[in-house]
Design a binder for these strands. Structure first.
Length: 480
RNA sequence: CGAGGUGUAGCGCAGUUUGGUAGCGCGUUUGGUUCGGGACCAAAAGGUCGCAGGUUCAAAUCCUGUCACCUCGACCA
């Protein structure tokens, strides 16, 4: 296609290569995922954006249930005294907590925190609910929003209030808690890879980067198209830290009073940001078929002509019956060309054009969003052929993202190389395990340690920063 | 909190240097013709120029103050 023609499609989005932030903002606003709220640092999630979140919820929830978890709901307001019980936890969250100090015209005796996370209130309830080893494990999850008063915000990636899921579990033994921690990280990885087509790097966080109050934090890290890292999900093992602070005890099989072992894990609407910044292109979003709220859109051509709308409706019913999420764009106020661009911007994986010419030939013109290629498919076998196409798009997006990620991970062994590597991706390197070296890298390159992968096959024997004997294989990157 | 920037129609902006009738593009409304890659013609609606003072015959424009938002740092999923 000629260059000028190509340009026509994207006149209203800042080209991705020029200013990635601006591209991101243009895409999320113009595809009607979000709008800015009249509240500091908050966003409004519009129907199309929320539909993506619902898809993620469905996929996650399915797996939570399958691994024996149940959904509950905890209050949004947490008494200050409760929040203060675990010292590290308070220290970590205090600066970004929002407080309620009065209600109904009265000043409260004890101010209430708007939850920045719900460990404390889950702990308060668990201490009440557990008395015997027979009560364990307790594996609860909640879908809710939390508030963190961040200094700077960006839709989906960091907002003052955000939607998420937080699982909180308590167990009889350390081994069980560790297994739960790793299992849930693996659930996240599996959903990210198979449903969202996001390749992720899983591993353990350094002590500097771990969750406030955790014994160990594990994360999955995704790479955005500007080379920056996005922490896409975390799973924490608290050991007995919180149990001791909140006095969550049970009588063991041996009749002894013991503390429970606790975990928590969460993913947020940040995942939507990850999908956008991983798969998006010059025309806007590209949604993987598995999580796309609309998998195929039917655009009638010359809709006023006899038989066109009838055929479109027929195909709609046929595909719906086959289990696809399909939409017929029957707006009569805009031209087909406008619709093409509109749905491409919104990332719908497949577009079916049906006009007089197609009907005459018994076909639909099929446009796939990932490659922007057009072909035709026979109308009578459309429902089955579409399945193969969806799979190809799902896989294509994953492969493309993985190839990009792999091409932007650089193995480095000294600080100069590390500095260059984090300019356009991740640095994979060796580390002595000292906080001082992480601080130095942060100071020098504004990059942080992402995680230490489970596969610790060394790429050297010296710390990239201090040169002392290395203890860990680790990733460094600039992060969102 | 440090440094920079921006506030004019629903959105994006011009106008501010040199004070003098409030402008443009997109969108919206109505009618008509169109419909295989962001259609066209005609008509119309839409503004306390962020807010408060001041200077002036006259302020979007000059002066003072103030508020909000954005970008980059520090902090974070």
């Amino acid at each position: 296609m000629a260059k000028q023609e190509e340009q026509k499609f994207v006149t209203h989005i800042t080209p991705r290569g020029e200013d990635f932030s601006q591209w991101y903002t243009d895409v999320i606003l113009q595809s009607e995922l979000v709008d800015y709220a009249p509240v500091r640092g908050c966003m409004v999630i519009r129907p199309y954006g929320y539909a993506i979140w619902e898809r993620i919820q469905q996929e996650m929830d399915k797996r939570f249930k399958a691994t024996g978890h149940e959904n509950v709901y905890m209050p949004m307001l947490i008494p200050e005294s409760l929040l203060l019980k675990e010292a590290e936890h308070v220290e970590g969250f205090a600066p970004e907590v929002a407080w309620v100090t009065q209600g109904g015209g009265e000043v409260l005796q004890e101010r209430l925190a708007i939850r920045p996370t719900s460990e404390t209130i889950f702990c308060a309830m668990y201490s009440k609910w557990v008395s015997s080893w027979r009560d364990l494990p307790m594996k609860y999850n909640q879908w809710c929003s939390v508030v963190r008063w961040e200094k700077s915000t960006r839709p989906f990636l960091r907002t003052s209030e955000f939607l998420w899921q937080e699982g909180h579990t308590i167990h009889e033994t350390a081994e069980e808690a560790q297994a739960e921690t790793l299992q849930m990280l693996d659930v996240y990885r599996e959903v990210a890879e198979t449903e969202m087509a996001l390749p992720v790097l899983c591993g353990r966080k350094s002590d500097k980067e771990k969750f406030a109050g955790a014994q160990a934090t594990y994360s999955m890290e995704a790479m955005m198209q500007d080379g920056k890292a996005l922490q896409a999900g975390t799973s924490h093992n608290f050991g007995t830290n919180f149990a001791k602070a909140f006095n969550i005890q049970f009588l063991s099989r041996e009749g002894k009073l013991e503390y429970v072992y606790e975990t928590s894990w969460g993913v947020s609407t940040r995942l939507i940001g990850a999908i956008i910044m991983t798969h998006g292109d010059e025309r806007g979003l590209r949604l993987p078929p598995h999580i796309a709220p609309i998998q195929a859109v039917i655009v009638p051509i010359a809709a006023h002509k006899g038989g066109v709308m009838e055929k479109c409706t027929e195909v709609l019913q046929q595909l719906k019956a086959a289990g696809y999420r399909v939409k017929l764009d029957d707006r009569d106020t805009v031209s087909p060309g406008y619709k093409f661009n509109d749905w491409e911007l919104k990332g719908v994986p497949v577009r079916l054009e049906i006009g007089p010419r197609d009907i005459e030939n018994g076909v639909a013109t099929v446009f796939r969003r990932d490659t922007c290629e057009k072909s035709t498919m026979a109308l009578d076998t459309l429902a089955t052929e579409l399945g193969g196409l969806m799979d190809a798009i799902q896989q294509g997006l994953y492969d493309q993202a993985q190839a990009y990620r792999d091409a932007h991970v650089t193995v480095v062994s000294d600080m100069d190389e590390l500095g260059k590597a984090v300019e356009n991706g991740f640095a994979k390197t060796m580390w002595c395990g000292e906080r001082a070296c992480e601080d130095a890298i942060k100071e020098k390159f504004n990059a942080s340690s992402r995680n230490m992968p489970f596969d610790q096959t060394p790429v050297g024997d010296r710390c990239v920063c201090c040169g002392k004997p290395a203890k860990k294989l680790i990733y460094f990157a600039k992060a969102y």
